[in-house]
């Protein structure tokens, strides 16, 4: 096994690969990330041949680790970096039990956090990534971790998965080419390219911050916004959480506090510039 240990926010990973190339790509992509605390990784993600005797001949890459899905579809070795990324994601989606996990992006400014959530295709990931290049600190583009007890958001700044049109959009604003991974064509998710978050997102990954607003964007419509009730916000957030139920009463307390102290707003936006303008307008109203 080729191996790389690294820490992203509160998670110390051990990543293993039966092939060298995907680990080398991962090492380049995650340049500058810290090692796990005390050199001790507590969560393992791996990729290995689906069938051990086919390690070299058109190998099928299986996504494995401490937590596994029985029916995870194997991938081709050309997409090995994506497979590793998915294995790392899966560990959090299935295994995280210390923080309330929202399927959402989040950005911070002046110590206050805007959470962007909604179904895939809503543009939350792209919008989070763009805000991260325009004066906001990116906390995460996909998984938001909320600390029970304090209600604070913990950053989880994994590499961002840019898909299809979002690739060119970020290529236009990110000058540092070293932050991009290789372009992966025709993956199960379309064309895909990873982007390492901006340096401050990595340097400040242990700074927690208080949620101020939950946004539910919808991409591709004329600009429009609408508030929602606390019960609706609560219900939508629980639907978008992979571990709400498993956290039991602590999950309930944490989620209820978020839904009753932070406003929730649905908004539509026509394009990325329009989306960012609306977010800035909300931020101004909240004094962020």
């Amino acid at each position: 096994m080729y191996r790389l240990d690294l820490r992203v926010g509160p998670v110390g990973y051990r990543v293993g690969s039966a092939w060298r190339r995907p680990i080398d790509a991962l090492r380049r992509l995650y340049a500058g990330y810290p090692a796990p605390d005390e050199g001790l990784a507590t969560l393992t993600a791996r990729i290995e041949p689906e069938k051990p005797w086919r390690r070299h001949l058109r190998p099928q890459v299986a996504i494995r680790g401490d937590f596994e899905l029985p029916d995870a579809v194997p991938m081709t070795l050309d997409h090995g970096l994506l497979a590793i990324e998915m294995a790392m994601n899966l560990q959090i989606a299935l295994g995280e039990r210390r923080h309330l996990l929202l399927h959402a992006g989040a950005v911070e400014r002046n110590g206050r956090v805007i959470i962007l959530t909604g179904e895939s295709g809503s543009g939350k990931s792209t919008l989070s990534a763009l805000l991260g290049e325009h004066g906001w600190r990116l906390l995460s583009d996909e998984f938001v971790l909320i600390e029970p007890g304090t209600g604070l958001v913990r950053a989880f700044p994994r590499a961002i998965s840019l898909k299809n049109a979002a690739i060119a959009e970020l290529e236009r604003v990110v000058a540092d080419r070293d932050r991009f991974g290789p372009l992966l064509r025709a993956t199960p998710k379309g064309d895909l390219r990873h982007l390492r978050p901006a340096p401050d997102a990595i340097a400040r990954m242990d700074e927690r911050a208080m949620p101020a607003l939950v946004l539910f964007p919808t991409f591709g419509h004329a600009s429009q916004a609408e508030g929602m009730g606390q019960a609706e916000l609560f219900a939508l957030l629980t639907q978008g959480s992979t571990n709400y139920a498993a956290l039991g009463e602590r999950g309930f307390e944490t989620m209820a506090r978020l839904a009753t102290t932070v406003p929730g707003v649905r908004f539509a936006y026509p394009d990325s510039a329009g989306g960012m303008a609306i977010v800035e307008q909300f931020a101004a109203e909240l004094g962020i």
């Binding site: 009730g229 606390q230 019960a231 609560f234 839904a259 009753t260």
Partner: peptide, 15 residues
């Protein structure tokens, strides 16, 4: 039961 009251509904956690 832990209960949180919102403007429109009550959220009840059933232990």
């Amino acid at each position: 039961h832990p209960v949180v009251t919102t403007a429109d509904m009550r959220l009840l956690f059933h232990r």
